[in-house]
Write a protein that binds this DNA or RNA. Structure first.
Lengths: 194, 194
DNA sequence: GTCTATAAGAAGATAGAC
DNA sequence: GTCTATCTTCTTATAGAC
């Protein structure tokens, strides 16, 4: 499972390519041939590293989970207080606006696809969303909204997912700027209340 | 295109079955065999009514467009004023909470799937979302928010799509109740301002 | 560890009988 | 208008040589 000893191994290259393609094309419509073409290996070589496509998906979800944990930890280390951390989260959508407008939210679209097919990896994908939820809740708690912290965290996730969904559907990057500005206003209004 | 003379024709049965299956399973992972099983026809019979799968999708989008137009017109006829109409829109999510929690928003998930693959029918699906946007904008204009009407309409769509996405991902019906209550509070606050 | 060759099945689509 | 039979292509997966 670890890639400590083989940082550039074929296995890791497969996971990295699958990670990108699953995001851009969806899991179901990404074939082994697609991944193989990117990694420059043959289709047969796949089954030396993974037993099935679902096993690749599991590895991709594990990768994204780790990456998300790392990102949230980095935000917590960079930003001095909870208010700044919440704003850092909001800025993520502006930062990734090009990819979001093209392919949607990586977490949201994966959860949507897996939830609709009651896929075994469904809960693993939802777990990534939960990581954000828990991290956001902790920031709202630090801001003094102990009682409503989880509701506020979910509300912020709702708006983020909605912004990504509409930016994707309308192919409209500018929508992200405008709606995130409203989110920042809302965060400011919470801060003054506490 | 019209179904006036053949209300229960095979063609209409195909469209109705495809409409449901495209929603529940997605377009790409719904096969001719799936639809044929529901309609109780053979796979070959398909091509007497449609030349390709994309043509079925076009018919489904046309059906949904008509249905949406009818629903919005009915809401406008039922609700006395713009404020009541906006609340009627918000209630739609509560009303459809079971399906939304299972399969997501029918419009949002279709737009997301087609946008990611740059599908020819992409704009047709986004058009349904535009119908909601235009209808909502008209209500905000009637409420006296002429300048901001479109931004307010988009904001309401953002929250609706986000609510549907999270209810689907977390399999959480209750989230819809709580977030729609917040939407209603927001609508109330707009009314008193005007 | 990587390859070629190939199986086994599902998909969209066609031809032609009835 | 509906069917069966068939074609082609794509997909996942396996077997075995190197």
């Amino acid at each position: 499972m670890s890639n400590k000893h083989h940082p550039a191994s074929t296995r890791d290259a497969i996971i990295a390519a699958a990670d990108a393609l699953f995001y851009q094309q969806g899991v179901a419509s990404t074939s082994f041939a697609d991944i193989a073409a990117q990694v420059h290996i043959s289709r047969g070589n796949f089954y030396h590293h993974f037993r099935s496509k679902d096993e690749i998906l599991d590895a991709v979800i594990a990768l994204r989970t780790d990456r998300t944990r790392g990102m949230l930890a980095a935000w917590a280390a960079e930003a001095p207080d909870a208010g700044a951390r919440l704003r850092r989260f909001a800025r993520m959508l502006v930062q990734n606006r090009d990819a979001i407008q093209r392919y949607g939210c990586p977490v949201g679209t994966l959860c949507s696809e897996l939830a609709r097919h009651a896929h075994p990896a469904r809960d693993g994908a939802a777990m990534i969303l939960e990581l954000f939820r828990n991290w956001l809740r902790a920031q709202f708690e630090a801001l003094g909204h102990g009682q409503d912290a989880d509701a506020l965290a979910l509300h912020l996730l709702v708006r983020s997912q909605g912004i990504a969904a509409l930016a994707h559907a309308f192919h409209d990057e500018d929508l992200i700027h405008r709606e995130i500005a409203l989110v920042e206003d809302w965060l400011d209004s919470l801060h003054t209340h506490s």
